[in-house]
Design a binder for these strands. Structure first.
Lengths: 232, 232
DNA sequence: TGTGTCATTTGACCTGAATCAAGTGAACAT
DNA sequence: ATGTTCACTTGATTCAGGTCAAATGACACA
């Protein structure tokens, strides 16, 4: 890895508190790679040779089955993906492709496991990250099982609006086809769900969404911190 | 905790390799409790004061929302539940109730975090457990998003049949209403799904199910190790 | 043996979401 | 400007699954 990138990585939560020597061990084996959009990085079922850390850009995690494909999660900086597979030395459960230009740190799984065993601060950081990812997936499962399509969309919009500053506007970071897969519906149905939300002040113009009646939308969405709050 | 129970607990994967002193620290703070069926142990949203370890019996993890309730997972020995919440000192994302008579080890979260920080072998075991739970939830999400109701039931039956010895019989360990919630459908629809599977050799008699044409059922279910294999 | 309770099943119907097919519209190249 | 392409939308229809209501059936208990 180029030495100019090292301070950037060192500041990431996952690495901030570990011993210098452990960090060096990781970095010696790691490389920070740039990828163009729409590159498939990993394929489900293959052995987990690397731990991936999103440094810049975004990645879509998806899975295939039954001739269908679904999006599990969108990964943004700073988070890891396929940490669980790397720690267990098992196959990836999900595939991954870049959405936009991305910089991704790749660390051989074996190195991760070795440093995990020897550096307690890193072990704590790994557990913090892993337990966070666990809770994210549980929330996604609750979202999917307890809500219908329109409610999932409404909550998604409200969450993004608040992440993007609470100014009543949302810029979708993914195309609508991917959003549909993420929300567990077809693109056609997503389009209709936007239509259903029009009376609740949702104005769609391409990827720019304006929320003009957030109170009404919130009443419909009934957001719950135990599903929608990323921090909880 | 009564000293006669300690060897039993010590053998659990989670505790087997840790230092004696760390184990003692955990056990001093822990207690092993018996519960009758249908006792609600924890409620989502409450702070995670304890880590729970299933020693005997079974527990249902479920969540509420939108006036609905859904089952996330059934926990059998030996596994932990709400490990992530305990490690992060956050609120439970799920509620838990016993299904049958259960013996459950309860360890204060604070003690877990302290021992985790000081005992590397325990830290490794915790990560093994946590990453396993993570993968289980990802599989559940894929199952829910990539399959229809009949396919989910078919795969559930095949998995249980193989867990129960591959003799072509399955004994349901939960009532059908809970099974329906676990599989993400209504009890009525579960009943119809069993009807749909009759031509595939699924014979239902109360909680006893016979699978007389596992080949046909497998062809319908199209099981995938990346969803259905608990070990992968 | 009856009676109540509760889980499950069945039937009729409805609705949310998928599918199939055609249309629109913006971005880009010609 | 004019196609061409691609993403998205719209319409018509079908289908899976949900809802509501009633029937059945097993078990516990009087």
């Amino acid at each position: 890895m180029r030495s100019k990138d090292i301070p950037l990585v060192r500041e990431l939560d996952l690495f901030a508190e570990m011993a210098e020597s452990s960090f060096d061990a990781l970095m010696q084996a790691a490389f920070l790679q740039r990828f163009p959009p729409q590159v498939q990085l990993i394929t489900e079922g293959e052995p987990a040779d690397f731990l991936y850390v999103m440094v810049e850009g975004s990645v879509e995690l998806f899975a295939n089955g039954n001739g269908r494909e679904t999006t599990i999660e969108i990964i943004n900086p700073v988070a890891t993906f396929i940490l669980a597979a790397a720690l267990r030395d098992q196959a990836y459960l999900m595939s991954a492709r870049t959405i936009e230009n991305a910089r991704i740190l790749m660390i051989p799984s074996e190195t991760v496991r070795a440093v995990f065993a020897s550096d307690a601060a890193f072990a704590r950081a790994v557990v913090r990250e892993l337990s966070g990812r666990f809770r994210t997936v549980v929330k996604a499962l609750k979202n999917q099982k307890l809500r219908n399509a329109v409610e999932r969309l409404a909550n998604y919009l409200l969450r993004k609006e608040s992440e993007q500053g609470g100014e009543g506007t949302v810029t979708l970071e993914i195309d609508k086809r991917t959003l549909a897969a993420l929300l567990g519906m077809t693109p056609e149905n997503l389009s209709r769900a936007f239509g259903t939300l029009k009376p609740y002040g949702v104005v769609v113009k391409g990827r720019e969404i304006r929320l003009t009646k957030t109170a009404d939308l919130t009443a419909l969405a009934k957001p719950s911190p135990l599903i929608d709050d990323p921090a909880s």
